[in-house]
Design a protein around this nucleic acid. Structure first.
Lengths: 139, 139
DNA sequence: CGCTAGTCTGTAATCGTTCTTATTTAAGAG
DNA sequence: CTCTTAAATAAGAACGATTACAGACTAGCG
């Protein structure tokens, strides 16, 4: 209930906060993405969802928007496969199960796994931007 | 020094051990891959290396061979980017730094990071096939 | 309203990878 | 050594996800 926990209930406020012009397309996509549920969605899936909701938006714009949101910290990109990446609306610290067969991605709470010894810098002193843990499941 | 630590010094023995016919192409690629150094190599890079070494082999065969070796446990596939995957000749337990800018992959010794709480099964009881940890570095 | 930088569209291009089909080859039998 | 056959390879077409491009559109401002 603190302002930090749920800072921007409205899509337009989220966009303003990260200095992205609230255009029709970005607003519509933001509303689809940030509806309160955590999502793991691909660009194609979001494009499909937009069309299904009668929002005319090109696939190129979906890609642009997803990358802009990711850069702004509203989304986190998760690469599971050569040639498949998902965008996660939950940007808090957590990890993932990945079901190789179905391609499904499932959250693994961040405090379930304790990691020690993870470096904050690379061997040559550069900053670690993030640590991805993917638990791969056969079935 | 135990037989297990360095079981197959010769490429041909490695192939026999995993029931892959030692064809000219597979032998040549195995020699390039398992020369004693740990490598993180992409299919294109290996193809280039083969051509440079005057080994005529098609890209399709390089892909087939890499996947067969991976399935046989001689290699480990590491996906870092949508549309880029590397094959690691070091199949022992360890993790990786990934330099986003250069695309370089660097080993992170397995016992540097201690992880606790990593599940052996998925929430619905399926076996975890492996856990990938990628420490992403900006520069 | 009119201007301008930023954004969007539709399509073509690109990239890494996989598929397909004809050809070649390893390896065992005779 | 030759024959036979299943397995492996070559070459390029096909593929799917993503990116690039050039022109049209629009938000925000005066």
């Amino acid at each position: 209930m603190t302002p930090v926990a749920r800072p921007f209930s409205h899509a337009i406020d989220r966009l303003r906060a990260v200095w992205l012009r609230p255009t029709r397309q970005r607003l519509a996509l933001a509303k689809l993405l940030f509806d309160g549920c955590d999502r793991h969605i691909s660009a194609e899936q979001l494009h499909g969802a937009a069309l299904a909701a009668n929002i005319r938006v090109s696939l190129a714009t979906v890609y642009n928007t997803l990358h802009q949101f990711t850069e702004a910290g509203l989304l986190r990109e998760i690469v599971v496969d050569a040639g498949r990446s998902y965008f996660d609306t939950n940007v808090s610290l957590h990890h993932h199960y990945f079901y190789e067969k179905s391609g499904q991605l499932v959250d693994l709470s961040g405090d379930m796994i304790h990691m020690e010894g993870i470096p904050l810098h690379s061997p040559d002193g550069r900053r670690v931007s993030r640590v991805d843990v993917i638990v791969r499941v056969d079935g």
